[in-house]
Each structure stands twice: as structure tokens, then as C-alpha cells.
Design a protein around this nucleic acid. Structure first.
Length: 421
RNA sequence: GUGGGCGUAGCUCAGCUGGUAGAGCUCUGGAUUGUGGCUCCAGCGGUCGUGGGUUCAAGUCCCAUCGCUCACCCCA
């Protein structure tokens, strides 16, 4: 039995790499427009980095982390998300100096969660993430969402839709949560079995249950907006105003909640079509308390992450491989032992001159080699047979017009510089 | 962790109520001595996921197991 890749992880094959490159390239380009700087973070961290920031009671920490003890006995974890690492690095390198500095960062890389794989969900997946440290200006919230939407439109995500909410902060959220628990307490019987569980573990999640009866039950439940403190309400209104100013369409959903503990105030999510049951392609929000909680100064921050696999899935073939960027400029065709050696000498010279050249190793029939040259998409074939070798010449054939001309072998540089039409 | 669907050639798949494995694409050779795209002919390629059971006989039926996949939980 051949050894196969671990469950839930994928090889990205050469035939698919073009899409990945395009997504990464446009990410870097778009981030540049907003003056974000790339940071490359380690793939594993001390486990506490994630346990503390993501939250001990979350599913990610409780059952999805790839954690292990290394030979020195350190408890390490393959990162399940990027924000925690980014916050750690931000603090470790004192990026908050001088006081008042705003630090825009982005990263691209793999994340690891041990879940059951399904459409758009993997154990090793890739995220493109943005983090903006040092400001709680509502304009920053809107700008960060503008960045995200601009990026998604640039790469051609299908029908991206922005959903917005505010979770309040430490001052006002506890009251909301309590109120919701009270509301559900005497309605538990009308909830689905799953939500009865949620009532205990994460009551906020009952709000966006898909079950008919739960949705009905929850229709009259309290919503977060009526519990916002003045600051949070004000912040939300200013974010909306800024979004309006940037001409960004969005939909408010007060039932939207987050799976990670560190979010406060602004949270958002982008869904796209062309995906499976999970249509969220990106998600993010504000985490004003996290830097301080992680041992840094009291610095507010906001960020988001897009799932690359889901994004690429959503792009589909619409923005697919249109240009044949793998086609060589020139294919060499050779016949006979001596011509074989000469062919590689010629190929080498052409490559030194910057040409993309294909030269077959096997000595097969001319018919075969011409067929390959044709399939490769090359514009020119350079043919060197016994006859040409003896005469120190080569045939240069234009594969689209089928015209060919004999050249002295010394013309190689000329042909490399200006391939004949 | 729970449930559904599927595992047959390198790839996509067919194979009926059990009778000893097929097609297309790819690849190799030929029709066409050293000239590609189209066509035609031939060939290479399979422990039918694995193990067990029923049977004269199993790709087909039964059980187990592994893998893939979709969905639930949760998340990007």
C-alpha cells in the first residue's frame, strides 16, 4: 500500500499552483496600497500563546489543536490561527514603540486544526491575515473592511457579502449574555437538542441556529444592540458612517457571534458563493483587550483572516489559467547521438540568453518530438538532425505557420534575442 | 466524536437477477525512412481498497476493516 498524505491535508500540485500564486500576488499588491507590511511567523508556538488568547473553553483549544511535547519537554502547538502569534511577535519586538505607533501587518501561511475534513475545511489550511495594531478609530474598522473587500474583488471572489455586528465590550456584554440566558431558561424545551447543549456551553450560539423551531424561539430574544454601552453604540455608528463613506455595502446581523474569545466590539464576516455548507470565506473583528491580556501594553487592534482554500474554491475557474505561462519559447528536436549533445549545447545557450527552452532527453522519432513540441505550446522548434549537425546548421521552424528556414548554428544568439516570426 | 455516499487501469468511469474484467483519455508502436495538430489500426497497463464468510463459481451477496467524500458539531 502506498503511503498517502495525512487525513485532511493536501498537496498543491503544479497544475494548481498558478491560482495560488495569483491570490498571493494580489494579496501582497493590495496590502501594499494600504501600507501593510508582511510578517512571517513561526508555524508553532508555545501552547500557552493560543490557550490564553483563543480561549480555554473554545473548541479550537479543547479538541482541535496539534499539541506536543518536544524533546526538551516544552509544550508546543502547531498554530490553529494567526492572530495570537502576531500579537506575541508584536509585543516581543516592542512594535508599539514609540507610543501611539500604528502597526499594520499581514501574513500568509498554513494553519492547523484537527477537525473532520469536509468541503472547504482541512486540517492544514492556509490563511491570509491582516492585523492593525494601535488604533481604535472607527475609521480603522471601516478601512480594514475596505481592504478586505478590495482584495476579494481583486482576486474575483464570487458575490462577496459583508456581514457586520458589534459584540460590545467587557462593560456591556456580560449583561447581554445574562439576559439571553434568562430568556432561554424557561424556553429550553422548545430548543433543538443541539441548542440545549449550546445553552450550557455557549448560549450566544443559539442565536444563529438554523433549526426552524430555534429560530422561531429566538425571534423575540434580546439582541446585543440593546445592551451596548454608550461607547460601543457610538463606535458602531461611526463605523457604519465610515463604511457608508467608503461606499461599502454590508448587512447588519445582530445574531452573528464568534468562535474565538478575544473579540470585542466590531465583528464581521464575508460569505461568498460557490462553496459548500460553509460559505464564510473570511472573518475578523476588533480585539482591543488582547494585547494587554497577553502581557503587552494597552493597545487596541483589529484584524481579519481569509481562508485561501475557500477563496480559491469561490473563484472557481472564472479567473482560471487563461494564459499559458508554462509554454516554452522554443522546443529543440534532435536526431542521432551527436545531434543529441549539440541540442543540449544549443539549449544551454538559449537559456543563458533568457529563453525558455524544452529539450527532450530521450532519442525518439522526429514525429514524436514534433508532436511534443506542438503540445508544449512553443512557438518555435529548433531541429538538429545528423544532416544539420554535419553542416553546422539548424532548422528553425515556426510551429504556428509551419514555415521553416535553415540557419547556421552560429545564429543562436540572434534567434534568442529576436525569435523570427 | 456522529451520520450518509463512494472505493474497478495513471485519470474519468461502465460492469444487469453471481458465470472468471471493459470503454474513453493518457502512454508506446504502426499506417507516414527526418517534420506537429485530424483520422485509422495495434499494443502496454488491473492483488476489482484490504481481510474474512456464503457459493461449484464473488467486482457483484454478507460481515469486518481501512481510505476518500459530503453533512452535523465547530470554524477560514
Amino acid at each position: 500500500m502506498v503511503i498517502k498524505a495525512v487525513k485532511g491535508v493536501k498537496d498543491i500540485l503544479p497544475k494548481d499552483i498558478g491560482k495560488w500564486r495569483r491570490v498571493e500576488d494580489s494579496a501582497r499588491e493590495v496590502f501594499g496600497r494600504y501600507d501593510y507590511r508582511e510578517i512571517v511567523l513561526p508555524i508553532f508556538e508555545k501552547s500557552e500563546v493560543f490557550v490564553k488568547s483563543v480561549g480555554e473553553t473554545t473548541d479550537i483549544v479543547q479538541k482541535e489543536m496539534y499539541s506536543f511535547l518536544d524533546k526538551g519537554g516544552d509544550a508546543l502547538t502547531l498554530r490553529p490561527e494567526g492572530t495570537a502569534s502576531c500579537v506575541r511577535a508584536y509585543i516581543e519586538h516592542s512594535m508599539y514603540h514609540p507610543k501611539g505607533t500604528v502597526t499594520p501587518l499581514f501574513y500568509i501561511g498554513p494553519m492547523f486544526r484537527r477537525e473532520r475534513p469536509q468541503a472547504g475545511r482541512f486540517r492544514q489550511f492556509h490563511q491570509i491575515g491582516a492585523e492593525l495594531f494601535g488604533t481604535d478609530d472607527p475609521a480603522a474598522d471601516a478601512e480594514v473592511m475596505h481592504l478586505l473587500m478590495t482584495f476579494l474583488k481583486t482576486v474575483g471572489a464570487r458575490k462577496p457579502k459583508l456581514l457586520l455586528n458589534s459584540l460590545g465590550d467587557d462593560k456591556c456584554r456580560p449583561a447581554f449574555r445574562q439576559s439571553l440566558v434568562d430568556f432561554l431558561a424557561n424556553r429550553k424545551e422548545s430548543l433543538c437538542p443541539l441548542c440545549k447543549e449550546r445553552y450550557e456551553t455557549n448560549p450566544l450560539r443559539v442565536l444563529d441556529c438554523k433549526s426552524e423551531t430555534c429560530a422561531e424561539t429566538v425571534r423575540s430574544a434580546p439582541t446585543i444592540d440593546s445592551f451596548w454601552c454608550d461607547d460601543c453604540a457610538d463606535h458602531f455608528q461611526k463605523v457604519r458612517k465610515a463604511l457608508y463613506g467608503l461606499n461599502i455595502e454590508y448587512e447588519i446581523n445582530h445574531r452573528m457571534v464568534r468562535g474565538l474569545d478575544y473579540y470585542s466590539r466590531t465583528v464581521f464576516e464575508v460569505t461568498a458563493s460557490g462553496l459548500g455548507a460553509k460559505d464564510a470565506v473570511a472573518a475578523g473583528g476588533r480585539y482591543d483587550a488582547l494585547v494587554k491580556k497577553s502581557g503587552g501594553p494597552d493597545v487596541p487592534a483589529i484584524g481579519w483572516a481569509v481562508g485561501m482554500e475557500r477563496l480559491i474554491e469561490s473563484i472557481g475557474d472564472s479567473a482560471g489559467e487563461k494564459t499559458n505561462d508554462t509554454a516554452p519559447d522554443i522546443c529543440i528536436v534532435h536526431l542521432g547521438e551527436r545531434a543529441h549533445g549539440e541540442a543540449f549545447r544549443v539549449a544551454g545557450l538559449l537559456r543563458e540568453q533568457g529563453r525558455k527552452v524544452l529539450c527532450p532527453y530521450r532519442q525518439t522519432s522526429m514525429k514524436k518530438q514534433m508532436g511534443r513540441a506542438d503540445k508544449s505550446g512553443a512557438k518555435l522548434a529548433v531541429i538538429i538532425g545528423e544532416e544539420e549537425f554535419n553542416k553546422k546548421t539548424m532548422l528553425v521552424k515556426n510551429l504556428s505557420t509551419s514555415t521553416q528556414k535553415e540557419h547556421p548554428i552560429g545564429d543562436i544568439r540572434k534567434i534568442a534575442a529576436e525569435p523570427p516570426a
